[in-house]
Design a binder for these strands. Structure first.
Length: 469
RNA sequence: GGCACCAUAGCCAAGUGGUAAGGCAGAGGUCUGCAAAACCUCUAUUCUCCGGUUCAAAUCCGGAUGGUGCCUCCA
């Protein structure tokens, strides 16, 4: 497949360094709060990438960290009167609840910054040895002047960055260059700290990802992913630290997802215009949120609104309804007069769907196009299902195709199917009887009653269908 | 100020050189006792605008306009 590499700003053929084995690092959440739909986008997107690579026959080592110690965690914990560790533990549990709901696979490993302190200290030591690190009054800093490639990911010129930084940072606070960033922050009153050769303190933000990536995946990973806002300075800094330490290419493909916007503005905690996944789930099921995210290409911005989610619900229902219909028709006792022409048509549609779906996925994970391919098969399958001219086996094969391809997108059109209760089935029987006697008033009354109990009755050529609403 | 990205129908959204996918909404029709679902037909002679390259451009190049993001914690 081809994937857009932020480093080269073009789509490139994706190949792993090790045969059939991809090493992927995804920047995970800072665990001080529930995550919002904007945070969910990279989790869903890169989970889908992972599923696709696995589907293609690869092994994937997938690391996603938890940033469990930083300013935000400390501040929130203080506000709530709990220890930062306690808050982090709790929020990690909450993360898993939402992530499981969104059908995001557990990472191969979810390292926590606080459990990687040794790795972090190790890495900083190497940077000291190689002359990239220095100490000030408040911490240990990385000296970007020692690293000539600084800015290569974000395309910034050093002078411009320095000019920008100087405008805001009035004092250098002991830094040699305004762009130098903290590797280790010396402890402040009331904050958690760990011992280090340079003094007690805690890790800077950027170093933890480098340390966890190097420790878990080695010096060079295939893919490092996250939101576009991480491109600078976070990922730029990660490159500087890691490559300065190892002398090796840190990441082969940098992959960044676009934002979820609200009224064309970035959704963010600081703007306050965010919707947590937990809140949204009150109104829309998890899989709708996932489907909604995957309906756009991952690098394009998504504008978030209820109307769009409502459209996603209807849209998704079309798929579920087709999958149900195929199973229903295939199991109906009605005799089919197989029409070879129609059979071949459906066979071709199945093949075309698979082909287009894979082509779309291969082209920079174009899930929007992949879903379009699925809808094409939905139409063809619906037509075939109502034609009474296609064998049950072939209908089921169309159904299996839909289920298989959706599974790779982390979507399950068969999920949440409850059995129809016996008393509802009895009412359906009663209605059918009334219909036979042409007592439509009674039949309609029973249908309304069944509907109010949460089930829809449909008369199809293949018989009566009962569907949970 | 610097660096990126984006602009396609009522809405959402693919499409990166050969005569505009898909979804939602809408109109008409088929089927139905009525519905529902499904299917069929219709809904952008045109892709923000202006130039250029080309036999051919939504797609490449230049410019303009509008919008967003990053440059500070941020998915």
């Amino acid at each position: 497949m081809r994937i857009y590499n932020s480093m080269t700003r073009q789509k490139e053929e994706l190949t792993p360094l090790e045969d059939n084995h991809y090493k992927i690092y995804v920047c995970g959440p800072t665990v001080y709060d529930l995550f919002h739909i904007g945070n969910a986008r990279p989790f869903v997107t890169f989970d889908t990438l992972r599923r696709y690579l696995i589907w293609c026959g690869n092994k994937v080592s997938y690391i996603q960290n938890f940033t469990d110690i930083d300013d935000k965690v400390i501040i929130r914990a203080q506000a709530e009167g709990v220890a930062p560790e306690e808050l982090a533990d709790q929020m990690i549990d909450e993360y898993y609840k939402d992530a499981d709901g969104l059908n995001i696979m557990r990472a191969t490993k979810h390292p926590r910054a606080t459990e990687s302190i040794d790795d972090i200290i190790n890495l900083i030591s190497i940077l000291f040895d190689k002359g990239y690190a220095y100490t000030t009054d408040d911490g240990v800093y990385f000296s970007i002047d020692q690293y000539p490639d600084y800015g290569k990911l974000s395309g910034h010129r050093l002078d411009d960055l320095i000019a920008g930084a100087s405008e805001r940072v009035s004092e250098l606070e002991g830094k040699r260059n305004p762009l130098d960033f903290a590797l280790w922050k010396f402890k402040k009153e009331g904050e958690p700290f760990w011992p280090s050769p340079w003094g007690e303190g805690r890790p800077g933000w950027h170093i933890e990802c480098s340390a966890m990536s190097l420790a878990n995946l080695g010096e060079t990973v295939d893919i490092h992913a996250g939101g576009v806002d991480l491109q600078f300075p976070h990922h730029e800094n990660e490159i500087a630290q890691s490559e300065a330490a190892t002398g090796k290419t840190f990441v082969r493909y940098w992959v960044h997802n676009g934002f979820v916007n609200v009224n064309y503005e970035k959704m963010s905690k600081s703007l306050g215009n965010f919707f947590t996944v937990r809140d949204l789930v009150e109104h829309y099921p998890y899989h709708i949120l996932r489907f909604f995210i995957l309906q756009a290409h991952y690098r394009m911005p998504i504008n978030f609104s209820d109307d769009l989610l409502d459209a996603a619900v209807t849209s998704w229902h079309r798929i579920v309804s087709c999958v149900d219909l195929l199973a229903f028709v295939a199991s109906a006792s009605e005799k089919v007069k197989i029409n070879p022409m129609k059979e071949r048509e459906l066979e071709e549609e199945i093949a075309t769907c698979r082909f287009n779906w894979q082509k779309a996925m291969d082209d920079d994970l174009n899930t929007a196009d992949a879903i379009a391919a699925i809808f094409e098969l939905v139409r063809a399958a619906n037509t075939a299902a109502t034609s009474s001219a296609v064998s049950p086996d072939l209908l089921l094969s169309a159904r299996d195709t839909l289920i298989e391809l959706l599974e790779v997108l982390g979507l399950d059109p068969t999920a949440g199917k409850e059995a129809i209760p016996d008393d509802i089935l009895a009412m359906v029987e009663e209605r059918t009887k009334a219909k036979k006697e042409r007592d439509f008033a009674t039949a309609d009354r029973i249908r309304d009653e069944i509907f109010s109990r949460g089930f829809k009755v449909e008369d199809t050529p293949q018989g009566v269908r009962v569907i949970p609403v």
